[in-house]
Design a protein around this nucleic acid. Structure first.
Lengths: 326, 326
DNA sequence: CTGTTAGCGCATTCAG
DNA sequence: CTGAATGCGCTAACAG
């Protein structure tokens, strides 16, 4: 069933059917009703593909993440999908993992499917290997990168001020009398580097001691690292991390070793995920405002799609959430 | 740029270009190389829309969930997306929330976009209001429902044996000497009913006491409920829930009230999400094998799409994961 | 093995 | 306000 069938039954031309389907132009009321009756009778749904053939758009956006099981990505993706849906856009979800080959494969798929734009979630997408292809794509469609910085025409950055966030954390802990910091981070992306930079800035500014370690993502690696540090007699009274899960690993190790939190050691995580309220004591953390980032990304995109001028780099502030580990 | 441009530059017909693009038929090696050279020169990517116009498929599947921020949905969705991607299919993600209007809107969008199939994740999609539209859609494309039962041609169920899982939990706790059970559940869907049924079966079979309460989803409502029960002097030595987060709410309340877990009270959650290892003590829980469900769903779908006969209702067993709360 | 041709279902001129 | 005609880029017969 297509508009020809509808047109025939309604005794009008396909152009008229198309018009009422999109109410794109004036159609006499009586004609419209005639057509609508037939449309309803068959519960007719037009083909977005055929429309896309003409308009060269499926009203679909690709959203590219590392792994949607990660709460951070899930939250941003959800926010994006919802904002987009309100604008009548659909979302193609891509979980690329960390492998660049996979990322390229997905990017290609999205181009094939003629998405109206691609939203890259997370800084792992700012990578030398990907730069060329991404810039190539940006010649045809706008690209938004969340929590990555990409200075290139038609590529828009929307991010949270990670650097400042870490500075704020350290500052707060210093104000509480903490003097010996441990920083655990689990990635070496743009965003991770910003956090690290913020941490380093702050400890040097406040002139406190600090040790920094890169650990594998997850709870276990952080647990082991802290255990190792404890065993080696390393002394610290504050743990700051780049991820909630890492913080929780550290926290669990401290508790297991009868170190009181927050009396002896303070802990601050990052992201304000559900995880942070599940542990005991509940984790103080930094809210990186994932939903807000998603919303802004779509807002920027919408502007660009409408041909309006949009901010090339939007930065919002994170927020320190104090719970029981500080 | 389209296949005409490629054809012209390679001095062949568009049919030949199409053939090498899909390697659908024998093409002389020398011709193929000629074409491929031009293809590479322009880094040509064919339009899936135009192809879809002819084949009536975009090699895209709709996956419909309540909310991807929920770890359960995120895990299943991830598994589906990955399995699908390996089959060269893309995934349109839909977060419908609980509102039926929204669900219908998404369903319509997916039909418009001519998806090859729709995968419904979670039992909230087995609802009288949705039955008609879903059955209508199933006339054109296969539908898979994960953790819901839908007996209808071209609709396939893939689910975890929730009933048995709950029976196993209770049985285990009884074997540990527990006699007074509290069951907290947070939804009234098909899946939730199965769990409830399993719980009831088991407590009656083992002849132990039980109280059952419906609470709102989340950590807080469970916490409050348990607090209320404790204050009222209600006596219990085992808490079983339909969700990890609910279990954690209960657990936190017990701990806060100096009730020892698992010495005084045992707790078992459901889903084996990351949350279960974040709390202290770590939560014993039921692994509902979300990744496996996603994988099987895609396997079933793939069969159907290839025109092979597939199982209408696939059931797998959950697994009891013992950690520190039992 | 390769080329010609006819649609796929729709939006969009351009006439009337 | 409405209709006829055109083409979007590709696949799939069908010829040769």
């Amino acid at each position: 069933m297509n508009i020809y069938d509808i047109a025939r039954e309604a005794n009008v031309s396909i152009a008229t059917v198309s018009r009422v389907l999109n109410d794109s132009a004036k159609v006499r009321d009586i004609t419209r009703q005639k057509v609508e009756a037939v449309l309803k009778k068959y519960n007719y749904i037009p083909s977005a593909i055929a429309r896309g053939m003409v308009t060269n758009s499926l009203k679909t956006i690709g959203i590219v993440t590392i792994d949607i099981r990660n709460l951070y990505y899930a939250n941003v993706a959800h926010s994006i999908e919802q904002s987009l849906s309100a604008l009548e856009f659909n979302t193609i979800l891509c979980n690329t993992g960390y492998d660049n080959e996979q990322k390229l494969k997905y990017l290609r798929m999205l181009v094939e499917k003629k998405v109206d734009s691609i939203i890259l979630v997370g800084s792992p997408f700012k990578d030398p290997v990907l730069d060329k292809p991404i810039e190539q794509i940006s010649k045809d469609i706008p690209i938004i990168i969340i929590n990555g910085l990409y200075e290139h025409p038609n590529i828009y950055s929307v991010r949270c001020d990670d650097k400042k966030a870490l500075e704020t954390s350290v500052e707060y802990l210093v104000s509480k009398g903490r003097k010996n910091f441990l920083y655990l981070y689990d990635a070496e992306t743009f965003s991770a580097n910003q956090k690290l930079l913020g941490f380093k800035n702050a400890v040097s500014r406040f002139n406190v001691n600090s040790e920094i370690f890169l650990v594998k993502p997850g709870l276990e690696p952080a647990y082991s690292k802290v255990k190792e540090l404890l065993d080696s007699g390393f002394d610290f009274d504050a743990v700051v991390t780049s991820e909630d899960l890492t913080a929780i690993g550290a926290l669990k190790c401290l508790i297991a070793n009868n170190i009181r939190v927050p009396e002896d050691v303070s802990v601050i995580g990052f992201n304000n995920s559900v995880l942070s309220v599940c542990c005991t004591p509940a984790l103080s953390t930094i809210d990186s405002r994932m939903e807000e980032l998603g919303r802004i990304a779509v807002k920027v995109l919408h502007k660009v799609l409408k041909g309006e001028k949009a901010e090339n780099d939007t930065i919002i502030d994170a927020e320190l959430i104090l719970r029981e580990t500080t």
